[in-house]
Design a protein around this nucleic acid. Structure first.
Length: 341
DNA sequence: AAGGTTTACAACCGCAGGCTG
DNA sequence: ACAGCCTGCGGTTGTAAACCT
């Protein structure tokens, strides 16, 4: 027996909202509030919409003080920092950006920011990394987690590689815009192994369990760490359960090489993050120039280079009253905002 | 100019978890 | 303790607009 539908699908309108519907919903909520029951709201207002749809429309578009588009570089940085730190926890990220909705940030990330940060790789680059050789019909839900983890690792390593010019001395790894150093190459091998063994939850755990990584990006401001901590606490059970599912559901994993190497990888990545935090290298112009040289053959490299080379100027940061709380304001007040290189 | 492709964004869907009786 | 309801979240889809050939 399936779950009861939240509304009568047959009598519910779908698709874009009309101005009339918007006006009715807005007027009603402004006068009477939601009454704590979204499901009953459409009937009260007299519109043929699902309660969930009303809620979404109100939260994302109709409620006061919503900003659309025009993301600033400060916001880009915050989104990127938090995404690397806590993953696709859009509601938590949105909470740090007043006036932004989780849906807006999610869309912005998926359509623009991700490409801006990771660059437009040639077809096959990302798919090589995520083990696309597997049968597409065999999707088991793990790919999503894997891709998220991979994206975050890619972001981290791109940031790291730009921060540390020595990385260019590594071996050849076609999926990366920059050559990898031995530790990074080893991490990638482990990552590929993780994908092959479908044990990607371990990967996710490795990231969630590494608060040091926040420090990589210079969060001398504690705020992002606090967000990270909140995110970890709120999902602690989910993550732990996920790990348990992996362990219980794959009882033989512990006995095979893949799992041992996964553990080794986790330890390695923790160490990597720790060392990185301790050995942060400042970027001078020459180092940056050397580093950017390695992007020259990559599609979209120009865009990336432009973006990366844009230093964030604290003094030019918006003093918009929107930022009365959240990361942005906190960092500005502390004068400790750290831009992604 | 027309058709095809890509991009951006609004909206939907299903699941998980909290709340309440 | 448990079942049902509701909310919130994150992933995915649909589609209009923009861009390209």
């Amino acid at each position: 027996m399936g779950r009861a539908p939240c509304c009568d699908k047959a009598n519910v309108k779908k698709g874009p909202w009309s101005p009339e519907e918007d006006a009715k919903l807005k007027d009603y909520i402004e006068k009477y509030g939601t009454g704590g029951n979204w499901i009953a709201l459409p009937q009260k207002i007299g519109i043929k919409r699902c309660g969930k749809s009303c809620r979404l429309r109100w939260l994302n578009y109709l409620r006061p003080n919503i900003k659309h588009g025009g993301f600033s570089e400060e916001e880009d940085n915050i989104i990127c920092n938090l995404y690397i730190s806590i993953g696709s926890r859009w509601s938590i990220i949105a909470a740090q950006l007043p006036g932004r909705t989780d849906n807006d940030i999610k869309n912005y990330w998926n359509t623009r920011l991700k490409k801006k940060l990771l660059g437009r790789r040639k077809p096959g680059h990302a798919s090589n990394l995520s083990g696309s050789t597997q049968d597409p019909k065999s999707g088991n839900g793990m790919e999503t987690l894997s891709n998220s983890a991979i994206e975050r690792l890619q972001l981290h390593m791109q940031l790291q590689s730009l921060e540390n010019p020595n990385i260019s001395n590594g071996s050849n790894a076609s999926m990366w815009p920059c050559k990898l150093n031995p530790i990074q190459e080893k991490m990638m091998q482990s990552l590929q192994l993780l994908n092959q063994s479908s044990n990607t939850l371990m990967m996710q755990h490795a990231f969630l369990d590494s608060p040091q990584k926040v420090q990589l990006y210079g969060s001398s401001s504690n705020h992002i760490q606090q967000v990270h901590s909140i995110a970890n606490n709120t999902t602690e059970n989910r993550v732990d359960n996920s790990i348990n599912e992996v362990n219980v559901g794959s009882s033989t994993i512990e006995q095979n090489m893949e799992f041992q190497q996964c553990l080794a990888f986790q330890a390695e990545i923790d160490e990597f993050f720790s060392n990185k935090g301790a050995n942060a290298v400042s970027i001078d112009d020459q180092a940056r120039a050397n580093e950017l040289e390695c992007f020259k053959d990559i599609d979209g490299a120009k865009d990336m280079m432009n973006w990366w080379s844009n230093e964030f100027d604290v003094n030019s940061a918006s003093s918009n009253s929107w930022y009365s709380n959240g990361v942005l304001d906190q960092q500005q007040r502390e004068g400790s905002y750290v831009s992604i290189p």
